[in-house]
């Protein structure tokens, strides 16, 4: 009887630990991925298949296999994202697209409705997706906005930019990823 009581209490404590641990993981995420990128470890970027911001169709990371990819995490409420949007659009038009470098804007922790207004206002023409629920942002360890990652043709993250990017920074990261 005593043994049964101990088992019941132990199972209850373990179950509680799992639930709390899961809740913490789900809400806070981890900054492990950007830390790995910053250390130069070239971690494999988490895959995704997200709905396009327009509402029709999806875009997956796998669809850019063999290409260098610039991934920009943003949100319409984020002020630095407003300063960064014209830089990214210009970079896309004048450098990334002509070189065959893919670029994806991942709208996360944001209202789709407001994100669409933002995209229209800044005339963003590169692919934009919506990270519903924020799981992909958490997988990339996004903790502040904006954040940008540059992936090489093998899908490994070669650079991480916390905060606003510059065209110069992107150029250097693309060169590091094996681009021109």
């Amino acid at each position: 009887m005593k043994r049964l009581v101990v088992i019941v209490v132990a199972v209850a404590i373990i179950a509680l630990g799992i639930v709390l641990g899961r809740a913490v993981m789900e809400t806070s995420g981890s900054r492990a991925f950007p830390a790995e990128v910053a250390s130069g470890a070239l971690p494999q970027a988490p895959g995704f298949d997200l709905q396009n911001l327009s509402g029709t169709g999806t875009t997956s990371l796998a669809s850019f296999k063999g290409q260098i990819v610039v991934l920009n995490f943003w949100a319409s409420w984020c002020d630095p994202c407003k300063d960064e949007a014209p830089i990214l659009e210009d970079f896309w038009q004048t450098e990334a697209k002509p070189q065959g470098v893919a670029m994806v804007g991942i709208d996360t922790q944001d209202l789709r409705e407001d994100a669409r207004v933002f995209a229209k206002e800044y005339g963003l023409t590169y692919p934009l997706v919506h990270d519903s629920g924020g799981a992909i942002g958490r997988a990339y360890g996004v903790g502040a906005f904006p954040e940008t990652f540059v992936l090489d043709a093998q899908g490994r993250a070669v650079a991480w930019f916390p905060g606003e990017v510059t065209a110069k920074g992107l150029r250097e990261a693309i060169a590091k990823a094996g681009g021109s």
């Binding site: 809400t27 922790q109 944001d110 209202l111 919506h130 519903s132 629920g133 924020g134 799981a135």
Partner: peptide, 9 residues
Amino acid sequence: ALVQDFGPA
């Protein structure tokens, strides 16, 4: 509507 965009959190 909020859960659709932000998830259940």
